[in-house]
């Protein structure tokens, strides 16, 4: 495990912003940390980076206590938007960051290339578009070849093209075997990119599994005539109005059964709950 937390809790006064969260991130996976705004994602991430001290519970990042130099030097992060000096160029900002991380200057050029910012590297950070700022944030996170990349809402505020760029970048990193913890409230983003998902709501981790498992089994929708005969023929089917819902792993066999019984099969299609539906069920957000 790259990251583990055990009953990690942060309280401000009586209010638990993060409430006994126990999660785990495995090496090489893209872990989606999913939750509505204010659910506790950023506070959890800040605790993993040592910016915020937990009220109780424990956390381990790459086998080290969060916030220690040993842990931080193996982690690259982008939290709630990039934090850079506006009067410095992108390249100089990375040079400042490289000094702090003890990384050679040559690595700055490599990460600039990786995020496709070489041509704009000498422009002042304040003149960057939001997308460029986010990419510079990812570049800074990549300095020193971290074992774990923590990206907190990396597509926040980006236009659709910028979001697509950022997703492509994360996908490319994942393809190289980079472990990524990606926090987001955008379900499509998580569904598209992540291997496993942790869903947090009101400070509590309400689910943690693969996207597939979260979405549950596929249900087949069948439209047939006569529908009552089809209902009798298919054991375990559920009649919903003029269609059947069937949990079936072999649609071919099912269709053959109906056709052999002279049932007119009009439509067969898989029905799956989207991650969005699952998310709304779990978090109570509508």
């Amino acid at each position: 495990m790259i990251v583990t937390t055990e009953k990690l809790t942060k309280r401000y006064g009586d209010r638990a912003v993060v409430d006994e969260v126990s999660l785990s991130v495995r090496r090489g996976e893209v872990y989606g940390f999913l939750g509505p705004n204010g659910a506790g994602k950023t506070t959890t991430i800040r605790m993993l980076l040592g910016l915020v001290r937990p009220s109780s519970g424990t956390a381990s990042v790459l086998g080290e206590a969060p916030g220690t130099p040993k842990a931080l030097l193996k982690v690259g992060s982008l939290i709630e938007g990039p934090g850079f000096y506006p009067y410095l160029s992108g390249r100089d900002n990375l040079r400042v960051h490289a000094h702090r991380r003890g990384v050679a200057r040559t690595h700055v050029e490599a990460v600039l290339e990786q995020v496709d910012l070489v041509s704009a590297a000498n422009e002042k950070f304040r003149r960057y578009s939001l997308g460029m700022k986010q990419r510079l944030g990812v570049a800074a996170a990549l300095l020193g070849q971290p074992e774990l990349l923590i990206l907190d809402e990396p597509t926040n505020g980006l236009d659709p093209a910028g979001m697509a760029d950022m997703r492509d970048l994360v996908r490319a990193l994942a393809a190289q075997g980079q472990t990524v913890l990606l926090s987001s409230h955008l379900l499509g983003e998580v569904e598209e990119i992540c291997d496993r998902v942790g869903v947090i709501s009101n400070g509590r981790l309400v689910a943690e599994s693969t996207v597939e498992q979260l979405r549950g089994d596929t249900v087949l929708l069948i439209k047939a005539d006569p529908i009552e005969k089809a209902h009798v023929l298919i054991e375990g089917s559920e009649l919903r109005g003029d269609v059947l819902h069937v949990r079936e792993t072999d649609p071919g066999a099912l269709i053959r059964t109906l056709v052999h019984a002279d049932v007119d099969v009009q439509e067969v299609r898989p029905l799956r709950r989207t991650l969005e539906e699952v998310f709304f069920e779990m978090t109570g957000v509508a």
């Binding site: 910016l51 850079f84 960051h97 702090r100």
Partner: peptide, 11 residues
């Protein structure tokens, strides 16, 4: 500017 968070997570 948010640079403290960048500084304090650098290592």
């Amino acid at each position: 500017w948010g640079t403290w968070k960048t500084t304090l997570t650098a290592g």
